[in-house]
Write a protein that binds this DNA or RNA. Structure first.
Lengths: 225, 225
DNA sequence: GCATTTATTTGCGTATACATTACAGAATGC
DNA sequence: GCATTCTGTAATGTATACGCAAATAAATGC
């Protein structure tokens, strides 16, 4: 397809992918500082592409460049989580509405359906990582069907910021039985072309998720993830 | 206050400000290409800070860096406008709701009130630029009161992308008499602590603005701004 | 005359060298 | 002993140099 991917990938792009991965996996822990030259050495390139990558990741909210202190991997506070979930709630709900208005074909809905099936299975086997993956897939596919490119970009950005937190919360939270039902209801509303319904159901889904998560964070005094 | 601003301003930061200004004023016209080295010469610095600035502006959606073609100032299409207005509608409505929930003090509301007074005056004197300025101020202040930093950043980003379009549409559109009324209603709802009302009123305000704008664009066949 | 290949140029990606500046710690004065 | 100033150092910000790939121009074959 894109032979761009396999071969010609600039060092800057590699640095973005690599650093992002390292941040999301926790290999670069939240709150830690790293000199540009260290990172450059780690990645086997000079400071220039590392700096450029860092600038991009900074605008995606994953890190912060502070003069003379190095690159700081940004932690996510409960307040951050509230902000992010509020944004996801609004934008994804609109996406759900638009998807329902769009008269999606079976093919369009295929990915969405698959994510639901995958989640069914993950819950049966109580495989939390698989659950998280299918959850992510559902939300990603939902905003894709919504058709708004900017919303897709914003949601992707916010998801990145939340992903690390999920690694922690995933094993604390209750088994997410409700999510599945919610997704199915949203799916049905989209398939049957009920925009308002899709919107409201997804909205409630996200509001509940936010409340649950914030509850957990407060209960466990998790002030930084 | 921040002596950072007045004196020590890195070339990269200067480049960001300067380039942004040049794009918003149309000095760098939409759709045009510019070599990094040209821009560097124009700004009186080397390519490095220009490149870094361009990377930032790229992630803010103002331009695009295409290898060997130079930096391309991104035009805004009607579809872009729809996307942007949809996002503004959702996020600002939430901000309005949150502002109304926040029990704002008189002082908090001062800026908002001032923007409304300013707009009154602008309409009386039919000064469209002044109207646009006070409109911008109202929306900016509204999201500030909403308290969500990420929403503020996103809205600022979207506003940047729309600003150029406004320069064109401002003198085509009907005299914005309705806006004023809308703003006042939203203001009252915030002041009196009626979150749902603030939300819905602002939502309708934005929906109407979107419809009006899209109507203009279609009518005048403005496919790129 | 047209297509295809080769040469040349041009601009970017990246490495590297250098300038700048904030900070730490030593030194000095009291 | 404490505060203040000075100086050295470390890390960033910026300039510059260079190789490479892509685009364009030239040349060759048919």
């Amino acid at each position: 397809m894109k032979d761009q991917n396999s071969k010609t990938l600039s060092n800057t792009q590699r640095a973005v992918k690599e650093l992002r991965r390292m941040i999301l996996t926790g290999e670069l822990a939240a709150g830690t500082d790293h000199l540009e030259s260290e990172l450059a050495q780690t990645l086997g390139m000079s400071r220039t592409p590392v700096r450029e990558a860092a600038l991009m990741l900074e605008s995606r909210g994953l890190l912060e460049m502070r003069p003379r202190k190095g690159v700081r991997i940004l932690p996510v506070s409960p307040e951050d989580m509230r902000e992010i979930y509020d944004i996801l709630t609004e934008l994804e709900s609109l996406a759900a509405q638009r998807a329902a208005e769009a008269n999606c074909t079976e093919e369009d809905l295929e990915h969405l359906a698959r994510s639901i099936a995958q989640m069914d299975q993950a819950i049966e086997t109580e495989n939390l990582e698989a659950w998280a993956e299918s959850d992510e897939l559902f939300h990603q596919e939902l905003v894709r069907l919504g058709g708004n490119k900017r919303i897709q970009a914003i949601v992707a950005m916010m998801s990145d910021q939340v992903r690390r937190a999920r690694a922690t919360t995933l094993f604390i939270r209750p088994l997410p039985l409700q999510s599945n039902e919610d997704h199915r209801a949203v799916f049905d509303a989209i398939r049957d072309g009920r925009p308002e319904d899709a919107r409201e159901r997804h909205r409630n889904h996200r509001l509940q998720a936010k409340a649950m998560l914030c509850g957990i964070l407060e209960k466990h005094r998790l002030n930084s993830l």
